[in-house]
Write a protein that binds this DNA or RNA. Structure first.
Length: 990
RNA sequence: GCCUUUGUGGCGGAAUUGGUAGACGCGCUGGUCUCAAACACCAGUAACUUCAAGGUUGUGUCGGUUCGAGUCCGACCGGAGGUACCA
């Protein structure tokens, strides 16, 4: 019988589904192991070969742990709310739900072909009302919570209200808005319902607040910081502006320190932890208040004279080097501080600064702009007057939106001072201020009164002490992390379970959930600019009366807790039973892409900590170990189309019918390269144009013009499936796109050669390779082995199928180990019950040892090599012993489950191989009778001496020393030491 | 700029703790089988040198530690990813 993977794989995939082989038990005596993949967004392009990379790795772990006797939870689901389905809906009118369902069906079909051991009974979909009911429920818990800094955890809002009622908010140590006013218990009780609601909003962990947000006009929605890259939206690449808006947000900043501390307790990669640390961006410093000077030129200052400007600095030691103070253009005191003389220029500056988009601001990051307000502050120590400037290098969103500028020791202040010719005062010795600022935190303080002579480190401490003593500021820790914007002005997301009564937002109660996403006539904003959900507002009302919130939740909402839902996927009463969350605890192994470092992976940690604070779960971190699988990139192919001058640009006007008659013409890669590099294109192109114009003269005798091309080539993406080894299949290309059916080609040696580049796989680049073709041609087991064999899991690599025959050949060879091979082909099973030989045992146990080590350190690529070595050796030994082949099957089964399952059954087993015990290595079988021990004398001479394995190291040393050749080398000297490494003598030191 | 990560044959990549660098696979070369091809099997394959045995050089560059360095240390160069007027 030949190895027929198609039949075998179909058979076992059906059997596993029918028997529910991989169903995880809710109750078990076995230890638990939870291995999780980041669930995919079901996109229209289908699963590409990059997706399974992580899934195969996690599947190997899941299967390995089952062999090792664990109760394994290995689920899969879909992150099914998201932008692409909605964009598609806007274009075609098809309901995103339909699109999503179709895509999910495709994903499922593709995954099933690869033979994953998922427990599909636990599948979740974030867009399923039964699921988002609990996303909404968690939102309400967060809405109804505040952060108590004293107990350092989130608490129910009722405990806060109780304190307000007894003692106002003076004694409360909570995370809240900066502008929260203080009030007494009496005042609290006297507040109207609206006023009370407004106050509580400043404390809630999910709150409606006015803040600068990233507004994307093209998408018509706000975006979180991690959804914006280089000033454009991550999805779609549309420009993003800053805009002050009322928005639902999550007070993730309350958890900044815990998110930072928690990193030390989890086994994630250093690079990932580092990006989270940077994103949280803790910096220790001092807040410091500067009094505003009253001057004759600004009588208005009298009104603000009691006001102060608060700045944040990490360098309080440089306080005597302050030569000006800079405010962000959006700073609240700008208006009041501007003198009449300066008003016009300040207004103009603030206007332009505000209207500049984030992108423009980043584009001319080196351009220094700013204006003087006309006002001054008083230096707290020297009493001197210091000018107040406005500059857009100061960000409104960070710190206090104002900085004390120390040009001598901060490069940004330095360039600002140089540009506006402001004084530069040196206070730390060691730099050359003619050239650049001296930012380093080392050196001795000078020109600094009571700080003179101190080291920077000591000076910082002394300065803080003095500042605190005078009551003008205090030591403070700032975080770069911003609160997370939670509302999206989009349709395809979870409705936020809030309704408004008299302008006050109220949360729905538990029994009113889920709040189902209403149907709308169009998936666009309303004419008034309200989110799409407002289109349903005439009938979609709370109790038929009150408007719901029209924003929906962001993409990260549903994925921030899905790992908990898998533990109890069908619970209608709770998001998950506490008994089950207590049993499954953390994810033991989480595999996914590193692109989620500052998004999903931060939010899921945040929600986990929150749910723990309220006692719903008892873990602080969602995943104990996390591995980032590398991206499998695609290889894109290009064709080069010659462009003709259009009527608008060219001097001659071409009749449209003639232009239409000219077929698209593609030049092979070498022509394009020459054109790009040496600009010699004219020879090639002119030859073509000459011929073209001759043809046109015949066809259109009336046309007197000449067709030209000054533009050169347009590079177009070609579907990689119609290109092989960079050679384009011309016929398929013509069929591929309607407008190329009559295309002409200029060849290189009879072939059309495409350009190529390694890029991220994406539908628009036509470089997506799906796993389906590989499964069809070589089988799922080959695909699994090959994806692992491609290289280390965590490394990014381009997809190519060059080496796949090696892996496919390995499986054929494995199959043949079990069968008699004769002239006419592979025949009956040949496995015998004879005792294995020593050599066979050695091969097996060597492999057991290596594979166990490989899996434990996630080095799946080397295990494939080790399997190959093992099978090659057994083939050479003509081994057909059951005692060798059975354990070998178990070893290979996590990697290639179908073929091993089939052979396992043929060996007479009735139970699935999935739960067979993983073989143990017996070191005794690894020992040789004799080794060759190389001896090298300071790297010069080498001798090969054999010793029996029974010899101890001392015996070896003695025997080496007794040898004539060694004695001759030593020339009577006594050796200082004989170095024995790994049972071998390597060197003798004289 | 800063942070993380990486650099090994024609290619993908091995080498767990410093111990015979290049496992395994692809590709290539030669051979067996075949009318021929495919499959399969056998042999060779870092470079230079030598008829051969052998010798020399070799893990981005330069230095260091060590009996011994791909591995450890210092400086530099290149690739990838993250991040940024964050005070």
């Amino acid at each position: 019988m030949e190895y027929n993977f198609t039949e075998i794989e179909k058979k076992w995939q059906a059997r596993w589904a029918k028997d529910k082989t991989f169903k995880a038990a809710d109750v078990s005596d076995k230890p638990k192991y939870y291995v999780l993949d980041m669930f995919p967004y079901p996109s229209g392009a289908g699963l590409h070969v990059g997706h399974p990379l992580g899934y195969i790795a996690s599947d190997i772990m899941a299967r390995y742990k089952r062999h090792k006797g664990f109760n394994v939870l290995h689920p899969m689901g879909y992150d099914s709310f998201g932008l692409p389905a909605e964009q598609y809906a806007i274009q075609t009118g098809q309901h995103p739900k339909i699109t999503t369902e179709e895509n999910i069906a495709r994903y499922r079909q593709q995954m099933d072909k690869i033979g994953f051991s998922f427990d599909w009974d636990r599948e979740v979909r974030t867009s399923d009302p039964e699921y988002y009911k609990w996303t909404q429920w968690i939102f309400i818990q967060i809405f109804n919570a505040w952060y108590n800094k004293t107990s350092d955890k989130a608490e129910d809002i009722s405990t806060l209200v109780k304190q307000f009622e007894t003692s106002g908010n003076a004694t409360i140590n909570a995370v809240c808005d900066e502008d929260t006013p203080s009030f007494t218990a009496q005042q609290w009780k006297a507040f109207s319902e609206k006023e009370q609601s407004d106050v509580l909003m400043k404390y809630r962990l999910a709150y409606l607040g006015e803040a600068y947000v990233n507004w994307c006009p093209a998408l018509g929605t706000v975006l979180a910081n991690d959804e914006v890259k280089d000033g454009v939206s991550e999805r779609g690449g549309h420009p993003v502006e800053r805009k002050l808006m009322k928005q639902w947000s999550m007070r993730i900043t309350a958890y900044a320190q815990r998110l930072l501390d928690g990193l030390d307790t989890i086994d994630w990669t250093d690079s990932l932890k580092e990006s989270q640390r940077n994103w949280i961006g803790r910096s220790e410093g001092t807040s410091l208040r500067f009094k505003i000077a009253v001057t004759s030129s600004n009588p208005k200052n009298e009104g603000v004279s009691r006001s102060e400007i608060e700045v944040f600095t990490t360098r309080p030691d440089t306080i005597f080097g302050v030569s000006f103070v800079t405010l962000a253009p959006e700073h609240e005191l700008v208006e009041a501080l501007t003198t009449d003389e300066q008003r016009e220029v300040v207004n103009r500056y603030v206007e332009t600064a505000k209207n500049r988009s984030e992108r423009e601001r980043q584009a001319d990051i080196n351009k220094i702009t700013g204006v003087f307000t006309g006002s001054y502050v008083i230096h707290p120590f020297s009493g001197k007057q210091i000018p107040i400037w406005i500059g857009d290098y100061v960000l409104a969103g960070y710190g206090t939106g104002a900085v004390m500028a120390v040009p001598a020791h901060d490069s940004r202040d330095y360039s600002f001072a140089k540009h506006f010719k402001l004084p530069i005062l040196e206070v730390v010795a060691g730099g050359d201020l003619e050239k650049e600022s001296y930012d380093a935190k080392e050196g001795k303080l000078i020109n600094s009164d009571f700080l003179n002579g101190l080291d920077v480190k000591d000076a910082i401490k002394t300065a803080i002490k003095e500042i605190e003593k005078r009551g003008i500021g205090k030591g403070k820790t700032n975080y770069r992390l911003r609160d997370a914007v939670f509302g999206r002005q989009r349709y395809w997301g979870e409705p936020i379970p809030i309704y408004y009564k008299n302008g006050i937002p109220y949360a729905l109660s538990d029994n009113e959930l889920p709040l189902i996403l209403p149907e709308v006539d169009k998936y666009l904003p309303t004419e008034d600019g309200e989110p799409p959900l407002a289109r349903a507002s005439s009938s979609w009302k709370y109790k038929g009366e009150f408007d719901y919130e029209f924003s929906t939740m962001p993409g990260w909402a549903g994925s921030s807790w899905y790992f908990l839902r898998y533990m109890d996927a069908h619970n209608g009463l709770q998001f998950a039973d506490k008994k089950l969350t207590d049993y499954w605890q953390q994810v033991d192994l989480y595999i996914g892409g590193s692109e989620h470092a500052t998004g999903h992976l931060l939010y899921v940690r945040f929600w986990t900590k929150f749910l723990k604070d309220l006692g719903y779960i008892n873990i602080e971190e969602p995943a104990k170990k996390l591995i980032n699988q590398g991206m499998i990139q695609g290889v894109s192919n290009f064709a080069y189309r010659l462009l003709f001058n259009t009527a608008e640009e060219g001097a001659v006007e071409y009749p449209a019918e003639i232009i239409r008659q000219i077929p698209p013409v593609f030049f092979s890669k070498s022509y394009y390269d020459r054109w790009k590099k040496e600009n010699k294109y004219k020879v090639d192109i002119n030859n073509y144009l000459k011929k073209l114009n001759e043809d046109i003269k015949i066809k259109f005798p009336d046309f007197k013009g000449v067709i030209e091309s000054d533009i050169g080539f347009q590079t177009i993406y070609v579907d990689v499936n119609i290109v092989e080894n960079d050679i384009l299949d011309i016929e398929k290309f013509k069929d591929w796109r309607e407008d190329y059916h009559n295309a002409e080609f200029i060849f290189d040696e009879g072939k059309y050669v495409c350009g190529s580049a390694v890029e991220k796989m994406s539908k628009s680049k036509y470089n997506v390779v799906t796993p389906d073709l590989v499964c069809e041609k070589f089988g799922a087991d080959t695909l699994r082995l090959y994806e692992m064999f491609l290289g280390p899991l965590e490394q990014s690599k381009p997809w190519n199928t060059n080496g796949i025959t090696g892996v496919s050949g390995f499986l054929k060879k494995l199959w043949r180990l079990f069968y008699n091979v004769t002239q006419s082909g592979v025949e009956g099973l040949s496995v015998t019950d004879l005792e294995p030989t020593k050599a066979e045992l050695k091969t097996l146990h060597k492999t057991i040892k290596k594979i166990t080590e490989d899996i434990e350190r996630f080095s799946f690529n080397t295990s494939v090599s080790n399997f190959m070595i093992c099978v090659n050796e057994l083939t050479d030994l003509k081994c057909n012993k059951r005692a060798i082949l059975e354990p070998l099957l178990v070893l290979i089964s996590p990697y290639a489950p179908h073929i091993t399952e089939e052979l396992w059954e043929q060996l007479g087993h009735t139970e699935s191989i999935a739960f067979a015990e993983f073989p143990m290595c017996n070191d005794n079988y690894l020992v040789d009778d004799a080794f060759n021990y190389p001896i090298s004398f300071n790297g010069k001479t080498r001798l090969q001496i054999e010793f029996p394995a029974t010899h101890s190291i001392q015996q070896i040393e003695q025997e080496v020393m007794a040898r004539e050749d060694v004695q001759k080398y030593l020339e009577g000297k006594t050796p200082k030491k004989v170095i024995v490494v790994q049972g071998r003598i390597v060197n003798i030191v004289v």
